Amino acid sequence: MKEWITGRNPVFEVLRAKRRHAFRLFALRGIRMEGHLPEIVEMAKARKLPIHEVQRFELDKIERNNQGIAIEVSEYPYRPLDDLIKHSQSTGEAPFFLLLDTIQDPQNLGTLLRTAEIMGVHGVIIPSAKSALITPSVVASSSGASEHLLVSQFNLAQAIDRLKGLDIWVYGLDEDERSRTPAQLNLKGGIAIVVGNEGTGLRSLVRKKCDEIMRIPQYGKIDSLNAAVAGSIAIYLARQARG
């Protein structure tokens, strides 16, 4: 299947990552060549893509928030779980994974993917059902970071079993009677962080399989963080602990 990616950063990262087959590029007629646009055009020419100068209404039919640029590409290239594990082992670092337990809001998924890529997460695992998928809107909300990550669709309970078999400690992000703060946990070794659904948190089986439940301490008057913010804080703290 084909899909359109719009926006300067997402289109730039799609071309830079070279993980999708690209078919054609649409650019707004008369657009100023600034920011990433010259590099986008050069990469498109290097890949011998047809480049079409089009009117605003043609881009708006694809996506209204298009920033004057759009690229038609193949659908997102999910990877087998084994590829994520092999990549992690090739880095020379302690394993670092992110598991997303039925995250459903595309903005939250994009934010978590963006944080994961910036913080050097080795791979992201999402369920194959009841979860937001990596659509063009998620690519946009991740600012194209999704294009540089290895993402696998896999049963989370089974994925946790696989990771634990590799001596990776699994931390579920939630709050209950056994939860501890990041400062009370050892985040320096091989770890996987599991972020739960925006409304219901971690599913019971996923929670049971976690080695520890981690909570983000809060000091203000609001009593909760949304999934993307809490997950991003946890990823950052884990990266800091790893040095």
Results as ranks from 00 to 15, higher is better:
residue 65 N to S: 12
residue 141 S to I: 06
residue 164 K to V: 08
residue 112 L to W: 01
residue 128 S to G: 15
residue 154 F to S: 11
residue 154 F to G: 00
residue 195 V to F: 09
residue 156 L to P: 01
residue 179 S to R: 04
residue 161 D to R: 09
residue 114 R to F: 05
residue 157 A to P: 06
residue 152 S to E: 03
residue 182 P to E: 13
residue 66 N to P: 02
residue 60 D to I: 08
residue 80 P to R: 11
residue 164 K to E: 15
residue 105 D to G: 00
residue 176 D to P: 04
residue 180 R to I: 13
residue 135 T to V: 11
residue 82 D to T: 14
residue 151 V to Y: 00
residue 69 I to L: 11
residue 68 G to P: 02
residue 165 G to A: 13
residue 141 S to W: 01
residue 170 V to C: 06
residue 167 D to H: 07
residue 152 S to H: 05
residue 203 R to S: 13
residue 165 G to E: 13
residue 111 T to F: 03
residue 164 K to A: 13
residue 170 V to S: 03
residue 197 N to R: 10
residue 114 R to E: 10
residue 185 L to F: 07
residue 191 I to G: 03
residue 199 G to E: 15
residue 121 V to C: 08
residue 136 P to E: 12
residue 157 A to N: 08
residue 73 V to P: 00
residue 109 L to C: 04
residue 143 S to E: 10
residue 144 G to T: 11
residue 150 L to E: 00
residue 185 L to K: 02
residue 97 F to R: 05
residue 100 L to M: 11
residue 79 R to T: 07
residue 136 P to K: 06
residue 95 P to Y: 05
residue 98 L to A: 08
residue 116 A to P: 02
residue 157 A to W: 01
residue 158 Q to A: 14
residue 135 T to L: 08
residue 126 I to V: 15
residue 101 D to E: 11
residue 200 T to R: 14
residue 79 R to D: 00
